[in-house]
Simulated scan of single mutants.
Amino acid sequence: MSVKILADSACDLPLELFESLNIDLLPLVVQIDDQQFYDLETIQPKELYDEMRNGKAPKTAQVPPARFEEAFLKYAEKNETCIYIAFSSELSGTYQTSTLVKDDVLEKYPNFDLTIIDTKAASLGYGLIVKKAAELAQEGKSKDEILSEIEFYCTHMEHLFTVDSLEYLYRGGRVSKTSAFVGGLLNIKPILNVENGKLAPLEKIKGRKKVLKRIVEIMKERGDGLNNQLVAISHGDDLETAEAMRDLIKEEFGTEEFLIHTVGCSIGAHSGPGTIAIFFLNKLN
């Protein structure tokens, strides 16, 4: 019996990949004013970014427990083997909620074979992990084989990103009001990464072009075999810059395979329009 892969919307994979790879989507919640939406179900990233450009300050919430319960019960009743690959527990309560719901479901279905993985990853860094797992599941790999590959990807996934405006990170409590104001005034762009599942600042660069060039330099310092791996680029409704970044990476490393997609609502609500993020492995198998 094949292994069923579940993932939440913070992995930022295109909807067509959820469908073609048979991944069960669990949506995080987005709230704009008094309206509540389900990420990728009742709101799409372009709508969110348009609202943010119009001054709205969306908030997000974890996958509702009821959605976990519905999904887990469906597969428990069928006695299916499942892996839920989760958004970093350091950035959302989604992972913790899923473990609590799993415990409840196991009381009714004690033989339900469900493993929950905290990726400590986000956006397409998380998405590359999910994609690999789903491809292995479609190939008929065993649960243990898939889990081994997931562990490797989680351990060696690099995240590098920059934002166009510090305002949105300020709203989310990631930077101070003073930093956001001064950064905007001086056109300072941060480079951030993810360390142990948490956002961590790396450098501050003046100017958009310089920050993109510096990200490529850091990729060179950290990456392994970048010409032979799939590099992911996610963007805050800025495909033109994402494609320019792709061209820089291709020129520097000879990379041929790219996955480019929009930063989804659950992360984009905090990073804002114009975000550019790069994901790659620092070690190959």
Rank of each mutant, 00 (worst) to 15 (best):
T42H: 07
K209M: 08
S2F: 00
A66Q: 08
K132D: 13
K59P: 00
P27C: 12
H261I: 04
V105K: 00
Q138A: 08
D33R: 15
F18Y: 15
G183K: 04
F72K: 02
V63N: 08
I267M: 12
N79R: 12
A122G: 04
L212H: 14
L26R: 10
L248A: 10
D39M: 07
I116T: 04
D113I: 07
L230M: 15
L169N: 10
I215W: 03
D144S: 15
N54E: 14
E41L: 11
R208F: 03
L48G: 04
E243H: 12
N228E: 15
G274I: 02
I146L: 07
A242Y: 01
G274H: 04
L281T: 05
A61R: 06
K4T: 11
I267N: 06
G183M: 06
E47I: 02
F161W: 04
G264D: 11
E221Y: 03
E195A: 10
E151A: 14
A61Y: 03
I129C: 07
E70N: 09
G272K: 08
E51P: 00
V263P: 05
E195G: 02
A66E: 10
Y153E: 11
S20E: 15
G93V: 05
R171Q: 15
V29K: 13
G225N: 15
I5H: 08
E158A: 00
R222S: 09
K56N: 06
E167G: 12
G184E: 11
E243Y: 12
F112S: 09
P65Y: 03
I218Q: 06
I146E: 02
L169V: 09
T178G: 09
L239W: 08
E51N: 07
L114W: 01
D164T: 05
E256Y: 01
I188H: 09
G268R: 07
E256N: 11
D24H: 14
H270N: 12
E135L: 11
L212I: 02
E256L: 07
P27M: 10
K46D: 14
L40N: 09
L21Y: 07
V30Y: 05
G184R: 07
E70A: 13
I276F: 01
A137W: 00
V216Y: 06
K131W: 01
T275E: 12
D164A: 14
L186W: 10
N228I: 04
I205L: 11
L100N: 10
L124G: 07
L15N: 06
L114F: 01
L166R: 11
C82R: 00
L239G: 07
L128Q: 14
E139I: 02
I191V: 13
Q138I: 00
L284R: 15
Q36H: 06
I260D: 02
S88N: 11
V194R: 12
D113Q: 12
L13V: 04
K198N: 14
L202I: 14
V211E: 00
